[in-house]
Each structure stands twice: as structure tokens, then as C-alpha cells.
């Protein structure tokens, strides 16, 4: 016998956690090596416990399509399950967003102006993030708050996933407006600014009122800019407007970080 399975691998083997191809090598080797079998017996947990774990593993229901997709994309299985529990990452929500974007793109093509799309696109990620955390739409909110996972961490995991999904969908819609070039991407910085501002204000105003106020402020800003426009781009979509959006996004992100511990207890509207 020229080699032996390392003790670490034998421990993993005993826990049914040794991955292929090392698992295949260990299987073959153990069949013919009494020395390794003896070490395996020493490092193994009691047989019943080992069987129970193996049984539980074999018995675990197969995760859904969305979770399997996330795992394939490299997410840890526990992160995938946390995301699968995010209310807005459901087909019905995503389908509504897609429908809205498609309708808006058609409206832009018929009106000949991208303003409607640019005004609407920042609101979709804002609404998605607002609906992904808090008592209004997360049925397990109360259980999540009293869990040892910090509320801000859970919020960030969900926010990143929802923002990514929302921005990708917005981005795909942007591709359907090639004639406007980079102008069609002017929704991106306002989207980040609105989302970060709403999250930063959530501990003060609650998870429903804060995004509603921010969304309302955005709608008012667009209406005012539209009334003051003289045929060119609306102010939020000019270079100066984009700079202002980037500044607001950065300031709101800083404020959000400062108030992060407020997400670890019941939010205002839930208490």
C-alpha cells in the first residue's frame, strides 16, 4: 500500500461530506486497507448519528428551481434558501415588472421620447427592495427579527438580489431602446439614489411610508422638471442631474450604514 487516506478526509468521509473524486478513491482504498478502516472507525461519530444524518440528507426535499439555479450560479445553499424566501423574487412579481417594462418600451417607441421609461425605471427597483423586507410583505418577518442573523445582513442579502434582478430587467429594457444611446441608461443612478434613500429612511418612517415618500418625491421632481423643460432632457437626466443622483446615493448609503443596527429590532410600523 503506497498511500493512505488522510485523517481529515476520513473525518469528512464519516460525515458523508467527502466530495468526488476523492470520495471514489476513498471508497476503493478503504475496501482494501485495514489500517485506514481502523482510523475511520476511530474518527467516525457513533453509527446511529451518522446514519441519522445520512438519512436526513437523503430525505431532504429537492430544492425548487430558483434555489437550484442560485446554487448553480455559486450561491451557498443556505444563502439560496434565504433568497428563495424573499417575497418579491417570485415569478408573479418578476412577471409584473417585465409586463410594465414591455408596455413602457412600447409607449416610448410610439411617443418618440424616453422620458416615461426614465421616470418609471428607477421606481421598479425601489418598489422591489421595499417589498422584500419588513412586516408588510415578508410573512416570516417577526421570526427573522428575533433570529441571531443580524437584520441588516438579511436586508443587504435581499437588497443585493432584488436590485440585481431589477437592474438586469431594466437593462434588458434599455437594450430595446438603442436609438437613444447612453441617454437610455440615465435611470440607473436615480434608481440607486431612490433605493438607498428609502432604506436609510426606513428606520425613521417605517418600511411602507419611507419608500412611498421617496417614490412620491421622485414623481413630484419629474413633474416639476417636465413643467420647466424647454424641449430638451428633463433635469434629472442631464449631466448635472446625474451628478446629483450619484451624490444622493452615496450620502444615503453612508446614512444607511450608520443606522444599520436599527434593522435588528422591529421596524417602526411593526411594533
Amino acid at each position: 500500500m503506497t498511500w493512505h487516506v488522510s485523517e481529515a478526509d476520513l473525518r469528512a468521509y464519516a460525515r458523508a461530506e467527502l466530495a468526488a473524486p476523492m470520495l471514489w478513491s476513498a471508497d476503493t482504498h478503504l475496501a482494501s486497507c485495514a489500517e485506514c478502516r481502523a482510523v475511520l472507525a476511530e474518527v467516525s461519530e457513533p453509527v446511529d448519528l451518522g446514519w441519522e444524518r445520512l438519512d436526513a440528507e437523503l430525505d431532504a426535499p429537492r430544492p425548487g428551481l430558483f434555489e437550484r439555479l442560485l446554487v448553480r450560479l455559486g450561491a451557498a445553499d443556505h444563502t439560496a434558501r434565504l433568497l428563495a424566501a424573499t417575497p418579491v423574487l417570485r415569478r408573479s412579481w418578476l412577471a409584473s415588472v417585465v409586463f410594465l417594462l414591455v408596455a413602457t418600451v412600447f409607449a416610448v417607441h410610439s411617443s418618440g421620447s424616453p422620458t416615461l421609461f426614465l421616470a418609471l425605471a428607477p421606481l421598479l427597483p425601489l418598489a422591489g427592495v421595499a417589498a422584500s423586507y419588513g412586516p408588510a410583505l415578508d410573512p416570516t418577518y417577526e421570526m427573522a427579527v428575533v433570529s441571531p442573523v443580524h437584520g441588516f445582513r438579511l436586508l443587504m442579502i435581499r437588497t443585493v438580489a432584488v436590485l440585481t434582478a431589477g437592474l438586469v430587467l431594466n437593462g434588458l429594457a434599455t437594450l430595446a431602446l438603442p436609438s437613444y444611446g447612453l441617454r437610455a441608461l440615465a435611470w440607473l443612478l436615480p434608481a440607486l439614489a431612490l433605493t438607498a434613500t428609502a432604506l436609510a429612511l426606513t428606520p425613521r418612517f417605517g418600511p411602507v411610508l419611507a419608500p412611498a415618500l421617496v417614490g412620491g418625491a421622485w414623481a413630484a421632481l419629474i413633474a416639476i422638471a417636465d413643467a420647466m423643460a424647454d424641449g430638451g432632457s428633463l433635469a434629472p437626466f442631464t449631466a448635472a442631474g446625474q451628478g446629483a443622483a450619484a451624490t444622493v446615493a452615496a450620502l444615503a448609503a453612508g446614512l444607511l450604514y450608520l443606522v444599520r443596527d436599527r434593522f435588528d429590532v422591529f421596524l417602526r410600523s411593526a411594533a
Binding site: 460525515r15 458523508a16 461530506e17 441519522e52 444524518r53 445520512l54 436526513a56 440528507e57 430525505d59 431532504a60 451557498a76 445553499d77 443556505h78 434558501r81 434565504l82 421570526m143 427573522a144 433570529s147 441571531p148 442573523v149 438579511l154
Partner: peptide
């Protein structure tokens, strides 16, 4: 998972 049991087989058990 919310209770920080991240190790899959132990958690499933």
C-alpha cells in the same frame, strides 16, 4: 438558517 445552522447535513438532521 436564520438560527445560523449553516452546515447542511447537521442542519437537515
Amino acid at each position: 438558517i436564520l438560527k445560523e445552522l449553516n452546515q447542511r447535513s447537521a442542519r437537515h438532521g
